[in-house]
Write a protein that binds this DNA or RNA. Structure first.
Lengths: 212, 212
DNA sequence: AGCCTAATGTGGTCAGACCACTTAAAATGT
DNA sequence: ACATTTTAAGTGGTCTGACCACATTAGGCT
């Protein structure tokens, strides 16, 4: 008779469990790498069937918030690339229009980042960037990963990373790169020459490898 | 003896099921609104337990690709706002830095869209937009939804929608708006005056409502 | 015809059972 | 005593069968 909430949960049980897990993680101060209770123990503690617990864990796994290792347990994990990309990819990356949108969007994001970096990043950081680019070989991917990071906008970084993952999944990879172009690119940033940096980006960094 | 694949599936079963469902949806030509087979039937057809089927369906539900209605069935659905946002939101929207990144990223995206609209959208479409903005009341949300749509870049639209959803979840809502400002904004687009449009956006559309 | 009432089908949830795998403890051999 | 092997316990992965709550439909009653 004390179980009047069993009927019409209004919100799906597994979503409630996700919320309870969140609270548990927060209140217990669990961080990346920590182990969370086993599915059976969670089932006991949260008064839910194991299958419901598992549906909640699948959601968290899909979000990349946990990692399950058979025989070992379930662990908190840094938010990072996750199955979302793979899954969404297989569903949407077929359409050629999507591929075009992808390349375009990636360009928009990179230009946005470029503008922001030019207007907000310190001389010192840009010099470090230049040194890094000068001293070793790098891929286009690595170069822009660093550039986007200079933004110090975690969300923007995340979005770019995801879009970039999609682009990679769609085989839009830039293999051979001209280092001089990239060095010149960084110099234009240091000179705070927004317009020329953008046109250099469009003409020399992207278009060359992109016309096929 | 014919079941040699039962051990060490190497990839999780529910992910395989997701892929099979994708193929099924594709080959059957199912579109938004269509009903997919019941969990029990899928369990039969795909030779998997119902719980595994359900884990796969939870994944698709989280991605917003299906919708389940108790007593009725499971239906294909347009990719749209989904639980991901709610879930990720509850996990990450606590941090104030995230909130700031959110507002900033939204601005970047909107400016990117604005630039693109100014350079690529036809006079006619912009006139339609102007008429729409003149003839009825609208919210900031609705205005930018339309603006972003003018981009005709589905991915960009999607990203903006998600970021906007986060922003709403973080209570970054613009309530009272000055219609004249928005009308003037559209006029600047029609005049193809990029710089002034951007500064108008920053000074009059965003900053006013954003300083609290 | 119109209403009411099974009956059926569906997703939602639970409980129990195996399996495969990992780890650590216990037993064994030297 | 030490090292090796074996066993046991714990954990995620999966399946089955059962019941509930809900929506739709078919049948029967008036």
């Amino acid at each position: 008779m004390n179980e009047l909430n069993k009927s019409t949960p209004s919100t799906k049980l597994y979503l409630e469990i996700v919320e309870k897990l969140r609270q548990m993680i927060e209140s217990d101060g669990l961080v990346s790498g920590d182990k969370i209770p086993s599915e059976r123990e969670l089932s006991d503690r949260l008064n839910a069937g194991r299958s419901s617990i598992r549906e909640a864990l699948r959601a968290l796994e899909l979000l990349g918030l946990i990692e399950t290792r058979r025989g070992e347990g379930t662990f908190i994990r840094d938010y990072q690339d996750h199955n979302l990309i793979k899954l969404l990819g297989t569903f949407f990356l077929q359409d050629p229009k999507v591929k075009q949108d992808l390349a375009e969007t990636k360009e928009y994001l990179e230009i946005s980042c470029l503008r922001n970096v030019i207007s907000s990043t310190s001389e010192q950081e840009l010099q470090h960037f230049l040194i890094w680019a000068t001293e070793q070989e790098f891929s286009d991917d690595e170069f822009f990963t660093k550039l986007v990071a200079l933004n110090s906008n975690f969300l923007m970084e995340r979005i770019w990373t995801i879009v970039n993952s999609y682009a990679k999944a769609a085989n839009q990879v830039i293999e051979a790169i001209e280092y001089d172009s990239y060095i010149r690119f960084v110099h234009l940033m240091i000179e705070r020459n927004t317009n020329q940096a953008i046109s250099h980006y469009l003409k020399n960094i992207r278009k060359i490898s992109n016309n096929k």
